[in-house]
Design a protein around this nucleic acid. Structure first.
Lengths: 115, 115
DNA sequence: GTGTATATGTAGAAGTGCGAGGTATCTCCC
DNA sequence: GGGAGATACCTCGCACTTCTACATATACAC
C-alpha cells in the first residue's frame, strides 16, 4: 500500500496532539503512532512536524515533559497535559466543531438533498 | 457583537472558494459575502486573504476570470470554475471528508457516550 | 555486525492567512 | 458641495506551520 498522503491543515496538528495527550503521560513517538492508528492511517504525523509541534506546545505551557524509561527500556520524553493545555484543548475543539460545521454548510451548497 | 473570529486552517480557503464558484460566475467580493452568509458568520474571508487566494487559484488554472458589470453597475472581475478546477474541488472535498472523519475519530477518544 | 524499529532532534524551503495600507466608484443624506 | 459608508479591487510584509532531508543514538533479532 502506498504511504498515506498527508497535507494536514495548519493548526490541526496541535489539536490532535493535545487530545492524544489526555490519555495520560505519553512520549512523542507514541503520540504519532496513536494518531495514525486511531485515524486508520488517514493521518500520519511526520517527525519533522511532530517534534517542533511538541516543543511549541511545551513553550506555550500546554504540555509538560519529563524523561522516563519507555516500555522498551530506552529513555523517552513523556508529555502530560497541563491545566492550561486542557483549557486550550477545549477551546480548539470548540473551534474545530464550529469550523467543521461551517465547511459542511458550504460544501452542502450544491446537493440540496439530504439522502 | 464582536467581529467574528477566524483562524481558518490553511488550505481550507481554497476549498470554500472553489465550492462557492460552482454557483456560477461570481466576483470576489460576493464570494466573501456568500461564505460569511452561508456559514452563519462562522467564517469571514478577509480581503488580505481573499484576493491573493483568487489569483493563486487562477494561476493554477482552477478559476478563469472576466471583467463584467456587477449588479450595482460597477466593474467587477467575475470568476468561473474551469474543468481543472472542478477536478481539484472534487479532490479537495474528498480530502476534507477523510480528514474530518479522522479528526472526529481522535476527538471522540474520551467521551464514549454520544449526547 | 548488519539491519530494523525505536526515539529524539535541527535546518531550510514552501506555502498560506492576516493586518495594514492604498485606490476608486456609487449612493444616501445633510 | 461635502462627508459617510458600502462596494470592489489590489499589494506588501509578517507570522506561523508543515514538509523534506538530514543527523544521532539505543535495543533487539539474525
Amino acid at each position: 500500500m502506498p504511504p498515506p498522503k498527508n497535507e494536514l491543515p495548519q493548526g490541526t496538528l496541535d489539536l490532535l496532539i493535545l487530545q492524544v495527550a489526555t490519555l495520560g503521560p505519553i512520549h512523542g513517538y507514541a503520540i504519532a503512532q496513536r494518531i495514525q492508528q486511531i485515524s486508520r492511517d488517514a493521518v500520519q504525523v511526520l517527525q519533522g512536524s511532530l517534534y517542533p509541534a511538541l516543543h511549541r506546545l511545551e513553550n506555550k505551557g500546554f504540555l509538560a515533559s519529563e524523561w522516563k524509561d519507555s516500555e522498551t527500556g530506552r529513555e523517552a520524553k513523556f508529555y502530560r497535559l497541563t491545566a492550561k493545555g486542557r483549557r486550550q484543548l477545549k477551546s480548539e475543539t470548540e473551534n474545530w466543531h464550529r469550523l467543521s460545521e461551517a465547511v459542511g454548510l458550504i460544501l452542502g451548497l450544491v446537493k440540496g438533498e439530504s439522502s
